[in-house]
Amino acid sequence: MRKNGSSASPHTVTLAMRWSNFQRRYAPYIFISPFFILFLIFGLYPTLFSLYMSFQSWTPTDGWGRWKFVGLENYTFTLTDPMFWRAMWNTVWLGIFSGLPQHLIAIPLAFVIHMVLGRFKTLATAVYFLPYITSSVAIALIFNTLFATNNGVINLVIAQLNTWPVLGWFLPDENINWFLNSTIKYGIAMVVVWQFTGWNTLLYLSAIQAIPKDLYEAAAVDGANRYQQFRYITLPMLRPMMFFAVSLTIIGNMQLFEQPFVLLNGGTSAATQGGQTAAMYMYRTAFEWLEMGTAASIAWVLFIFIGILTYLNNLIFGRTARGEV
């Protein structure tokens, strides 16, 4: 079958016609190709290669190709590695204690910004959003100074609050050393909450703005106060956005890297074991101890773990978010 149409004889097909044909047929593929080329090089290839690498033993300084097949050894090592499980525990702890507060603060905050601030809404959102677009490394460096034991601002504030009645009963009398295995996680959680609450506020604010005004007006006519409007209109209507925002938080927190990495001075801090996350442990396994295969297996164990959590989140939140209940 001839695709050029049956009337034109081969001799009358001009160059321009061929070009136009070529364009019509292939231009869409060419236009869409940059994404696929970049995805293949920087997305799919490294992913598949890391899967392959997780069954090999390779010290990268030996050079390309000098790896050895070891079967499941990397996985059995990782799954029985106390340092890995400690890092996983840190990750889960940080996931909860730096994840939950973000949402517990962001939802009421978004509601208040929407209801009260009026024309300063944009400015307020921008201010809360600012930490999100600031470099994590710069943030962690500044917090390093704020967390200093003897003259850090955070300890000075705590010491000041300690002189207040009632509050003083709950606060320690001595300066807190924030760089201990037992305390570093609170510090990291503070940084993460501070950095990402603004992002979640923005998400919830956009969802709140999409809630039809007449719902509130109807509720007001029925005598609902601000709190009741929040509890019975805003919260239920926010469910789809909660599902989305919590999914993002889970994925982001399970891969937490920069903040602990900088606060722990790249792993040279005495509190490294108490604060390093699975992603940071993976990085150090690869680049400090040069065990690329083991590091790849950590990546895949972490991937499966994130997959399970996301599935659970979908199970709990997803159906109500889609309005199936």
Binding site: L180, N181, S182, G267, A270, A271, T272, Q273, E288, W289
Partner: peptide
Amino acid sequence: FEIVSTALSQVLNE
């Protein structure tokens, strides 16, 4: 070095 540092930190801090 990493593992001995951790042990030292456990002895000194914990």
